[in-house]
Deep mutational scan, measured.
Amino acid sequence: VPQRAWTVEQLRSEQLPKKDIIKFLQEHGSDSFLAEHKLLGNIKNVAKTANKDHLVTAYNHLFETKRFK
């Protein structure tokens, strides 16, 4: 089981690129989880459509539901 890579403050910070969060989610989330949160596909394309709040919610949801690969 992966550990949380970032704190809530870090997740919301401008310093953390959306692409980093997407990469983490794609590496650790199950396909059904990723599909549900519309996070499947090319990281660049996902970054265009997903806002930061959406990614933070998905990140927290992944750990709450433990839907890891």
Rank of each mutant, 00 (worst) to 15 (best):
V56G: 03
Q26A: 04
P17D: 15
E36K: 06
N51D: 14
N51L: 09
D20L: 11
L40Y: 10
G29T: 01
L11K: 02
Q26W: 09
F63R: 01
K48Q: 14
A5L: 15
R12H: 14
N42H: 12
K18L: 08
F33L: 02
A50Y: 08
S32V: 08
E9G: 03
V56A: 14
V1E: 15
L39K: 00
W6F: 06
E64L: 08
A47S: 14
H54E: 11
D20F: 06
K23Q: 11
R12D: 06
G41A: 05
S13P: 02
S32H: 07
D20P: 05
V1P: 13
H54S: 11
A5K: 15
R67Q: 13
L62G: 01
H61C: 14
K66L: 09
T65N: 11
N42F: 10
R4A: 08
A58L: 06
G29P: 00
K66S: 11
K52P: 03
E9C: 06
G41N: 05
T57C: 12
T49D: 11
E64A: 08
E9N: 04
K18M: 07
K38L: 09
W6S: 03
E27F: 06
T49Q: 13
Y59C: 02
K19N: 12
I21Y: 01
L39V: 05
K48A: 15
T57W: 15
Q10H: 06
N60V: 14
V1H: 13
E64S: 10
H61Q: 13
P2H: 05
N45G: 11
F63T: 02
K66G: 13
I22Y: 03
D53N: 10
I22M: 04
I21V: 06
E64I: 07
E14D: 14
V56R: 03
T7Q: 05
K52C: 08
F24M: 03
E64N: 07
T57N: 13
L39D: 01
E27V: 07
E64F: 08
N45L: 15
L62C: 02
A58C: 08
L25E: 00
H28G: 02
N60D: 11
E9Q: 06
H61M: 15
L62P: 01
D20A: 10
R4T: 05
A5S: 10
R4M: 06
P17S: 09
K23T: 10
A58Q: 02
L40M: 12
D20G: 05
F68M: 02
